[in-house]
Amino acid sequence: MQYMLLIYNDPAKEPAYGSPDFEEMMGGFFAANEKMKEDGVLRSGEGLQGVDTATSLRIKSGKVETMDGPFAETREHLGGYYVIDVADLDAAMTYAALIPSATFGTIEIRPLMDYNPMG
């Protein structure tokens, strides 16, 4: 099964760039990447630019409305994601727990929809 691991965190809680904690976190992400690749489960994964770069769009009465900023005002922002292919939720949870930002943020685990129109 394929799962997306959505990486949420509060930027205020992130370790400062260049600090020893930051170095440790980078090492943790690198190790998580390596482990997912080595186990052959990693399908894709990217980090996102900060929410100050976000543009939100919706169509109201046929008119495109844009908004400067993220869709939802929450303290935890989506910062990146991985897509992994593993046997079950327990396995997905094992990989999610490798993501270092889980110690100060949240990893949301969502199965990808398995939709095959060809039947």
Binding site: M1, A87, D88, L89, D90, A92, T94, I109, P111
Partner: peptide, 12 residues
Amino acid sequence: AGIGFEVPSADH
């Protein structure tokens, strides 16, 4: 969500 019908492995 793919919760398995298995007795969990030792690490879980």
